[in-house]
């Protein structure tokens, strides 16, 4: 008896619509684009700053436009989603064993959130 295995094709372009968990994964991946764009924005800020107070004021004004505010809000939401989705999987990638037990995952996740708060406070303190 000859064999004739049947292969089910997978779409290369829209496979991630087939499962909610794939969509969640894609959301994590796609949100990093906002972080990239924001980083480029920061480089622009530096460039304008280097060009003198007028250029910088102009840049700030552009940021204050509805579009600028909208982008900042969207980038904030995306960055929070992206970061927390990574924080939440850190116990899988970096388990910590103490003797005959593993440190509970929520402590490892909690430490990441804690570090995040501390760094944010420092940035806030330096900013004002």
């Amino acid at each position: 008896m000859s064999r004739k295995p049947y292969i089910r094709e997978i779409s290369k372009t829209n496979w991630f619509f087939s499962q909610p968990r794939y969509m969640r994964y894609m959301a994590r991946e796609v949100t990093c684009i906002f972080i990239l764009v924001y980083t480029i924005l920061l480089v622009f800020a530096l460039k304008n700053l280097a060009q003198g107070p007028e250029a910088y004021a102009e840049f700030l004004e552009a940021l204050n436009s509805p579009l600028g505010i909208l982008f900042n809000l969207a980038a904030l939401v995306a960055a929070v989603y992206h970061s927390t989705s990574w924080f939440n999987v850190t116990p899988q990638a970096m388990p910590i064993q103490r003797g005959e037990e593993f440190v509970p995952g929520n402590i490892i996740v909690g430490a990441h959130y804690g570090g995040w708060v501390v760094i944010s406070l420092i940035v806030l303190f330096l900013g004002v």
């Binding site: 499962q19 794939y22 991946e29 116990p91 899988q92 990638a93 970096m94």
Partner: peptide
């Protein structure tokens, strides 16, 4: 592996293969 994590979600034995792969990466 891009750490989709689906393997660990469906594993009936709670092996957490996704965790193992990330540890190998580290």
């Amino acid at each position: 592996c891009s750490f989709v994590g689906a393997c660990s979600e469906v594993c009936p034995k709670h092996v957490d293969p996704a965790g193992a792969l990330q540890q190998v990466k580290v």
